[in-house]
Design a protein around this nucleic acid. Structure first.
Lengths: 172, 172
DNA sequence: ACACCCTGTGTGATCTTATAACATTAAGAG
DNA sequence: CTCTTAATGTTATAAGATCACACAGGGTGT
């Protein structure tokens, strides 16, 4: 689960939100948006943090902390786990990335800027991850919580299954 | 996170689904139900597996694999991680226990027998876990999945927050 | 300039969680 | 009774995460 999957997609290609898109542009935009939001809110998007975010945007799939760490080492940053974890903590705290609990891995946020409680679709065959909106607290769970007197602060919603691309492959 | 929380509740007491109930009875019933279902379906509820299930039912909260392993050792079973993980794999596969991804821990299923996709409410103060029903695939997430052509096989729904008991304590 | 503080980074050690690989035992089928 | 298979026991190691402490850099106030 470290560096496998999708051979050779240097910069623009396949790994997905399950839809084709101009990936170079999407990376650039997201990075710019993050920068301007940090400027606005007095947050420090330091080199390590920026590098981690950029990496996750580029890859466009879930990466483990140690995979990220490998890239950081290659880029000349510190190579001990805390370096990666601290950057990830910062990015997650401010909503630039999300942690996928099911995979113990991290993805760049697909809806930066907007407040949201994310839901994910995780392909068990290729590890691709798509982010959707969700409102779990509005449905059955919210009702149960209200009935029980439980105050929801944060939700984890992750669906595991097969993405369209892998379903096609499996049929063939 | 190994063996903390709830001092001295030997057998019947506090840890919760957020509601008072006759715990000794609930453990006994669940264990009996598990036994009869295994008999019906030709599953083998071996001593290790039974012990793990019993333990999780007794505790009525999420336990890490290594905490479970401690108890197994005390009970005279093997003391190496695979012993616990294999029992947990079996129990989870057949729906007797669920894994709480957020905590990397396991709880006994509160709705045994019935097919269901569980949702959990996790108290961040006392680690109590309550299980509710959920139908995530029916709401926004299901719509998103259908739109994207993603086939959902399994969902993880976990809400983190504060349980009624801890909310009261915090107020006081 | 200086000392001071605060935030972030680098590093080593350690802890927790999980799996791989292989030997051994126990239970059912013929 | 022997073959086969499922389950258990055990060693070793991988993968994920945190602790503790040292140090660097950029502000501030003096």
């Amino acid at each position: 689960m470290t560096s496998n999957a999708q051979p050779g997609h240097g910069d623009s290609a396949a790994p997905l939100g399950f839809e084709a898109h101009d990936h170079a542009l999407c990376v650039k935009d997201a990075l710019a948006a993050a920068e301007s939001r940090c400027a606005d809110e007095g947050l420090r998007l330091t080199p390590v943090r920026r590098k981690v975010l950029e990496l996750l945007l580029q890859e466009h799939r879930a990466l483990g902390a140690y995979a990220i760490l490998d890239h950081l080492r290659d880029a000349g940053f510190g190579s001990q786990p805390p370096v990666a974890y601290r950057a990830l903590d910062f990015l997650a705290e401010h909503g630039f990335v999300h942690k996928i609990e099911r995979l113990n891995a991290f993805v760049a946020c697909a809806h930066p800027g907007e407040a949201h409680s994310p839901a994910f679709m995780i392909c068990r065959m290729c590890d691709a991850v798509a982010e959707a909106y969700s409102a779990p607290a509005k449905g059955a769970l919210g009702a149960a919580a209200r009935a029980a007197g439980f105050q929801i602060e944060r939700t984890v919603v992750e669906a595991e299954g097969v993405c369209p691309a892998c379903a096609d492959k499996a049929d063939a």
